[in-house]
Design a protein around this nucleic acid. Structure first.
Lengths: 175, 175
DNA sequence: GAGGTCATGTAAATGGTTACATGATTAC
DNA sequence: GTAATCATGTAACCATTTACATGACCTC
């Protein structure tokens, strides 16, 4: 029973107001895309499970078979419990760094190309996040406040990757 | 057929010298643990598949049914191909940041506790990596050279998380 | 001979991705 | 009426985790 954070992401989004699977899909594409990507099929299946476990209920139905889900008390409790109790997860897989590990197999030009690509990637990410940061109109809701905190994390992360990549490219030309 | 980086991690480790599943397990526990954790069962199953695909072969057998695998030409080619071609992966899931997103659900003390925990976690990680950095005797092999690059990434990453967490805790007491 | 380490494998369950499949409603 | 969007669901496959299962060899 450990992990399963898609559940908690869905519960978290339902805290403010009820929403349909479709709504939640859009919310994932927007705010949560960089933190917890989820596919359409995954969201619908998980919602069914959450409803079966009575952490959410269908609060309203609409056109086209639309079902709006709302958080139950048990759902809110589960979310709070997870927020407080969840322990630091194991280190997460990092495909880019894995490549770095084996750079020795390539010849020098290819090596530099790989690192350059990582540098560009970091720059693109940073630019995208700076754009989001100015494009969103931040209100004073909780999601705004803590979403901004998460975004700041992303900004610092991409800056770190950029700086590292610059350093690493530079290292290549050394002894 | 996209992703599958465990394959490439194994191929990468076999570049330098042949090794058994057991050896590879130890190598994962050591150097690669922070970049690409893998379990025993996963390693053995993947080795069997890699052998079936003729990217590696059993080069030698030893006591206790030990099988030493060596990279084939096809295996080396596949590794190089992956190193050069692999495109930037989708953003990876981040359980900690997901928690940040929903901090609003908690009361102030719990909120601070969550961020403090993240701060401590970052500090511990940083200390552990600094320790590794001095404990390993770095030779001038490729794995040493690029392993050090990867470690530098880790050092910067944990510093970034530490600084962010300090900033975030500070933010809590503001308007 | 007892305990530790070396060594391999399989099975069940979970979580995630991709693809398929369908259809109602709205806006033009 | 046509296209876009809203809306839901299922199936097959792949990757990963946890647990089970076994046994040979080495050191004391």
């Amino acid at each position: 029973m450990w992990g399963m954070s898609l559940r908690h992401a869905l519960l978290g989004l339902l805290v403010e107001h009820p929403a349909s699977g479709y709504d939640l899909l859009k919310l994932f594409e927007g705010s949560l895309a960089n933190v917890w990507p989820a596919s359409q099929s995954q969201i619908y299946t998980e919602l069914t499970k959450l409803a079966a476990d009575e952490l959410i209920t269908v609060s309203e139905t609409g056109p086209r078979g639309r079902k709006e889900y709302a958080l139950t008390d048990a759902g809110r409790a589960e979310l709070q419990h997870w927020l407080v109790e969840s322990k630091p997860s194991r280190p997460t897989r990092n495909p880019s760094l894995l490549r770095v590990f084996f750079l020795g197999v390539l010849d020098p030009e290819q090596r530099e190309a790989v690192l350059d690509e990582m540098l560009e990637h970091a720059k693109r990410d940073r630019a995208a996040m700076e754009h989001i940061s100015t494009a969103i109109d931040w209100d004073d809701s909780d999601l705004s406040r803590y979403g901004r905190m998460a975004l700041e994390w992303g900004l610092r992360f991409s800056a770190m990757r950029r700086d590292w990549a610059e350093w690493a490219v530079d290292q290549l030309d050394r002894p």
